[in-house]
Structure formats: C-alpha cells, structure tokens
C-alpha cells in the first residue's frame, strides 16, 4: 500500500517482526491513537499491555470515554508510535469497563515505512543519473566509469532520501546496452556520482539491497551507506523538486 502524496508505504510484518512489535509493546508505549471504522480519531494512554491491550486515562472533556465510542465486538485500528517507527494493527474490542477498553489484535501488524524517505518515481525529463565508479572497491573499467559524455550513465528510476533504484543498462545512442557492466549480487557495495536536478551532485557509497527484472530490464535497488545528513537532504530535496514540478 503506497501513499504517494506522503511517500508512505505500509508493510505487513513477518512472524519475527510481529513478535518483536509485541515485545516492544510490553516494554511500554506511552500513548496510542485509535481510529474507529467511521474515521473518528482518539488519542489514548496505553495502561497495560500483553496479549490484550488496554487503554484509558483521558478526561471526558477532551475525548469521550473510550467506552462511549468503542463497543464490545466492534473493531478499530490502533496506531502505535515507537522508537523505530509507526505501527498499525487492527483490534477488536473485547471488554469495556467505564473509560477502559480491552482489545485483542489481529495477527497482521503493519509498519509504516518510507514516510520520511519520500520515495519518488523519476519521470521522463528529469535528468537524474548515476555514474558508477567502483563495485566492492574495485574500479569499474568501462563506459560506466568513463568521463561523462552524456551516454555513459545509468538511469535512476526512483529516488528517496535513503537510496535509489537504477536501470542496470547504460544509456547509449540508438539503444540500451549493459555491455561492460559487472554482475551484481545483494550485499555488494558500489560507489559513484549521482547527478541531481539543478546541477547538484552527490558522491555515493551504497549497498545493493535488491535486484529485479522489469520488462526484461535489470533494476538495482541501492541503499546509501552511512550517509551524511547533507547527502540525505540533497536526495530529499531532489524528491521534493520532482513532486512539485510534476504536480497536476
């Protein structure tokens, strides 16, 4: 699920991720948000945790007592902001006692990802490209590393503040070519120069996070390694530039 305008994406946690989330909950989350199915929003304090969550502690003047808006058997969504991110889980009201509500939650737990990364597709016309210098510290001796001629760069498909995705073919006059490009595997490290809008450039050191083929073209997902805040800002502003320029 992708929320384009916020660069947000929800990922369903696997079993180990879900267990980690529950353990974190047991350590304590000070407050949670509750969204009812008719889009009402309430903020609560989490008073006890375990396999059953309970919330209360809000004055009736601020929001109605939980028991007034949530009935036994109803479902809602619980939003928990934790040190490592925002989580979303569907809950069912098991018991209501005055201002306190007890929930059981569904197996699927979603984590809100990429919100701060602002992953953005690079549309045609935006010259964002990458010139590869090395793979696993070995210099690349091909056109990808040659001085810029306008046809020696790798096209960037999407960009975020944490990394970018490349089409693993060199842009050639009259067609694409991957001749001379090394084969990559997940975990490889690459370095090079990323060219961004408005003439900005960033020296990049990144790890290969994923490899995939789309319409017969190899695509490589790269994640920045130990990026400086300046680098992150450069990429972030590139995303913002694209989004503002391409708005309808």
């Amino acid at each position: 699920m992708n929320d384009e305008s916020q660069g947000a994406e929800f990922r369903t946690l696997d079993a180990s991720g879900a267990e980690k989330f529950k353990n974190e909950l047991r350590l304590g989350v000070e407050s949670v948000g509750i969204l009812t199915d008719d889009n009402q929003q309430f903020l609560f304090r989490l008073t006890s945790v375990g396999n059953v969550l309970a919330v209360d502690g809000v004055k009736a003047a601020v929001v109605p007592p939980a028991g007034r808006v949530l009935k036994v058997g109803e479902s809602a969504q619980l939003v928990c902001l934790m040190s490592d991110g925002c989580y979303l889980v569907r809950v069912h009201v098991r018991a209501v006692d005055g201002g306190e509500v007890r929930f059981v939650f569904e197996k699927d737990i979603h984590r809100l990802e990429r919100r701060n990364d602002c992953r953005t597709l690079v549309p045609p016309g935006f010259a964002i490209s990458f010139r590869l210098n090395s793979v696993n510290r070995a210099l690349v001796s091909n056109k990808a590393a040659a001085p810029s001629s306008g046809h020696d760069k790798l096209a960037v498909i999407d960009v975020s503040s944490r990394g970018f995705r490349l089409r693993w073919t060199l842009t050639e006059v009259g067609g694409d070519s991957n001749s001379g490009l090394p084969e990559l595997k997940v975990g490889d490290h690459v370095s090079g120069e990323l060219s961004l809008p408005a003439g900005r450039r960033a020296e990049i050191f990144a790890a290969v996070r994923n490899l995939g083929s789309v319409n017969g073209q190899l695509q490589v997902g790269l994640e920045l390694q130990n990026p400086t805040i300046r680098d992150e800002q450069l990429l972030l502003f590139a995303c913002m530039h694209i989004r503002q320029q391409t708005a309808l």
């Binding site: 407050s31 948000g33 929003q41 925002c86 979303l88 979603h110 809100l112």
Partner: peptide, 14 residues
C-alpha cells in the same frame, strides 16, 4: 492514510 480505511494514521500526533 490507513491501508484499512481512508482515515489518517495520526502519525506524529501521538
């Protein structure tokens, strides 16, 4: 927005 409904996820407001 929530993947379950169109409601906002509340985010940092918590």
């Amino acid at each position: 927005s929530s993947p379950f409904s169109k409601g906002a996820v509340l985010g940092d407001r918590i």
